Simulated assay, not measured.
Amino acid sequence: MKYEKYYYKVHIEVWKHGENGRFGFINISHIPYKKLYEIFHHQIIKEEFLFEEVGGYQIDEPLYIKHKTFFDKEIPFKFDFSFFEYWIGLTGDDFNKYKKDYYEEWPPSI
């Protein structure tokens, strides 16, 4: 499933515990979809494509510890699970508006 003239960006949404708004975003679109599937496959329930049904996947402390070496190398951020929650999300928008820091195709089927 690919939408012409759209880009897809994967980001971490940072939420402060007990707050209703996002604290910030971290672009992680440099990480291949295959690696995202490897990390979050246990959270996929019925999607045919990554992000199709749920819109996001959580990085909780046990998942972070399991993939700590990868996260610390690939994500320029210090995780603090006592203060924040972390969710991986996919957004899409008009392809012609943005510089190349995104995926050009919808994630492959699972």
Rank of each mutant, 00 (worst) to 15 (best):
25 F>Y: 15
71 F>E: 01
39 I>N: 06
51 F>E: 05
59 I>F: 01
13 E>W: 09
81 F>M: 09
20 N>A: 08
23 F>E: 15
105 E>C: 05
53 E>D: 15
89 G>N: 11
77 F>V: 04
34 K>Q: 15
79 F>Q: 03
40 F>E: 00
90 L>M: 13
26 I>Q: 05
55 G>N: 09
70 F>N: 01
29 S>G: 14
3 Y>L: 12
106 W>F: 13
24 G>Q: 11
54 V>R: 07
20 N>H: 06
37 Y>H: 04
25 F>W: 15
82 S>F: 07
84 F>I: 02
98 Y>Q: 12
22 R>A: 15
76 P>H: 13
16 K>F: 09
55 G>P: 01
44 I>L: 04
37 Y>Q: 01
14 V>L: 03
17 H>D: 14
8 Y>M: 03
61 E>V: 08
19 E>F: 08
34 K>P: 01
90 L>R: 02
77 F>Q: 05
35 K>V: 10
80 D>H: 08
3 Y>T: 09
58 Q>W: 11
59 I>D: 06
26 I>D: 04
97 K>M: 14
73 K>E: 14
36 L>W: 05
30 H>C: 04
71 F>C: 04
7 Y>R: 04
64 Y>F: 15
97 K>W: 10
4 E>R: 07
36 L>E: 05
95 F>H: 12
7 Y>A: 05
71 F>V: 02
101 D>H: 13
74 E>H: 06
90 L>I: 01
30 H>K: 15
67 H>R: 06
74 E>C: 04
65 I>A: 12
69 T>A: 15
80 D>V: 02
83 F>A: 13
80 D>M: 06
89 G>R: 08
99 K>Q: 13
66 K>V: 00
19 E>S: 15
100 K>H: 10
52 E>L: 05
35 K>R: 15
43 Q>F: 00
2 K>R: 12
22 R>W: 09
10 V>D: 01
56 G>F: 00
3 Y>F: 10
84 F>C: 07
106 W>K: 08
4 E>S: 07
17 H>F: 12
82 S>T: 07
43 Q>A: 02
73 K>C: 09
63 L>H: 11
73 K>Y: 08
2 K>G: 07
73 K>N: 13
29 S>T: 07
4 E>D: 08
63 L>I: 05
81 F>W: 10
88 I>K: 03
44 I>Y: 02
5 K>A: 10
23 F>D: 14
96 N>T: 11
26 I>G: 05
10 V>G: 03
88 I>F: 00
5 K>I: 00
62 P>G: 12
74 E>S: 10
40 F>V: 02
12 I>C: 06
59 I>L: 07
20 N>R: 11
29 S>R: 11
95 F>M: 13
51 F>K: 04
98 Y>M: 12
8 Y>F: 07
18 G>E: 06
75 I>E: 11
50 L>Q: 03
67 H>G: 06
84 F>E: 02
61 E>Q: 15
31 I>F: 03
62 P>Q: 12
9 K>I: 07
57 Y>D: 02
37 Y>M: 02
73 K>P: 00
44 I>M: 04
23 F>I: 00
29 S>A: 09
59 I>W: 01
59 I>M: 06
5 K>W: 01
105 E>N: 15
103 Y>K: 13
54 V>N: 09
61 E>L: 13
27 N>E: 15
8 Y>W: 02
14 V>S: 04
47 E>K: 00
46 K>M: 06
90 L>E: 00
80 D>P: 01
90 L>H: 03
26 I>M: 06
92 G>A: 13
12 I>N: 03
19 E>D: 13
13 E>A: 14
72 D>N: 14
